[in-house]
């Protein structure tokens, strides 16, 4: 049997949360993980601590305390100006061996996956990736991770009975951020790890995060068809609000209301978004193939007989021109109230 560097008998009743941050703020996925970790351990003796790395972690570490963590372990080093999988793995490895948490969870982001994949091998432990839920048995210390496979067709529960830490990466967006009262006695512990430039595995030559149109990667797609009569202003606003992109069927593209790069379907872009909202689209097959892999499809069409209603999860028989503005308002109200 493969043996991890420490086992259940040596592990501490600790859930360690890897905290990702950008521009002095914690990433949403990390906030969700904090909430989940606190929820899993609430009312018990279990300890939850954050682990944060960077050249300057002060602000995000404070934010973690404000979000209810009692303890944040911080590793600051001048070479850690950005994520480098080699240096970060090395630093985390040292901390994990010192702290011996029973559970170590990360966000299934590009960085989180890179780090978790290497770290699990170095610790010779089990790793469950892209989990959609977590459960913790506080008695046995057993973590149960829910994952989906085969395009979501199968759901599996996974455990690592004999290995520690039990590592899981969690799909961004599955855990909600809860508002928790900050812990007054919360502490940030600095740990020094000796690192040098030679610990960096790669040179980052360029980095650009900005707007680039690639519908196939968009998580949210708002699609307009002939029934929009060329009115895409509202759809743009809705897409903007949801952080998505606007796509279209062939007719509005043909009529010049929207760029051809945004055409969806057999001769356009085939997408697999989490959400597709189709507005004024009847549902011709050559369009439908472009969104049939979407996790959720919402269809709005004035014609109750429209083929699209056979392909949707939620259908609305109405004029999209009336529904969309009301929806934008309702969404604005909702997000306003949840952030208050």
């Amino acid at each position: 049997m493969a043996v991890s560097l420490y086992g259940p008998e040596d592990a501490r009743q600790t859930v360690c949360v890897y905290l990702e941050h950008n521009a002095g703020r914690l990433e949403d996925v990390s906030l969700g993980l904090i909430s989940k970790a606190l929820e899993l351990t609430s009312g018990s003796d279990w300890r939850v601590c954050g682990l944060i790395l960077g050249d300057d972690t002060r602000k995000p570490a404070q934010e973690a305390l404000a979000r209810g963590l009692g303890e944040v372990i911080s590793i600051q080093h001048e070479i850690m100006t950005r994520f480098d999988v080699s240096a970060f793995t090395r630093a985390c490895f040292e901390v994990i061996l010192q702290e011996k948490p029973a559970v170590f969870i990360l966000g299934a982001t590009p960085d989180g996956r890179d780090l978790a994949g290497r770290l699990a091998v170095r610790l010779r432990t089990g790793l469950n990736a892209d989990c959609t839920d977590l459960r913790l048995n506080l008695e046995t210390g057993q973590l149960i991770s829910e994952v989906s496979g085969f395009g979501g067709g199968v759901i599996a529960l996974l455990e690592s009975p004999a290995h520690r830490p039990q590592m899981s990466t969690v799909r961004p967006g599955v855990f909600e951020q809860q508002f928790v009262r900050p812990v007054k006695s919360g502490v940030i512990r600095q740990i020094d790890v000796s690192l040098s430039r030679s610990d960096l595995q790669s040179e980052l030559l360029e980095r650009s995060v900005g707007e680039r149109l690639d519908l196939s990667k968009s998580q949210v797609l708002i699609c307009g068809g002939r029934g929009m009569h060329g009115e895409f202003v509202q759809l743009n606003a809705l897409a903007e609000q949801l952080g998505g992109e606007v796509g279209a069927t062939r007719p509005p593209v043909d009529e010049g209301y929207i760029e051809r790069e945004r055409q969806i379907g057999q001769t356009g872009v085939v997408c697999r978004p989490k959400l597709a909202v189709t507005c004024g689209i009847s549902g011709a097959f050559h369009f439908v193939v472009g969104i049939q892999e979407a996790d959720t499809v919402v269809a709005i069409n004035i014609d109750p007989q429209a083929e699209i209603f056979n392909y949707c999860d939620y259908g609305v028989v109405a004029d999209a021109h009336q529904v969309i503005p009301a929806l934008i308002e309702a969404l604005a109200r909702e997000s306003h109230s949840s952030h208050a």
């Binding site: 002939r226 062939r250 007719p251 043909d254 011709a284 097959f285 050559h286």
Partner: peptide, 10 residues
């Protein structure tokens, strides 16, 4: 049929 239906609705 597919092409003609498309054009008919277009």
């Amino acid at each position: 049929i597919s092409c003609l239906e498309d054009s008919r609705s277009a």
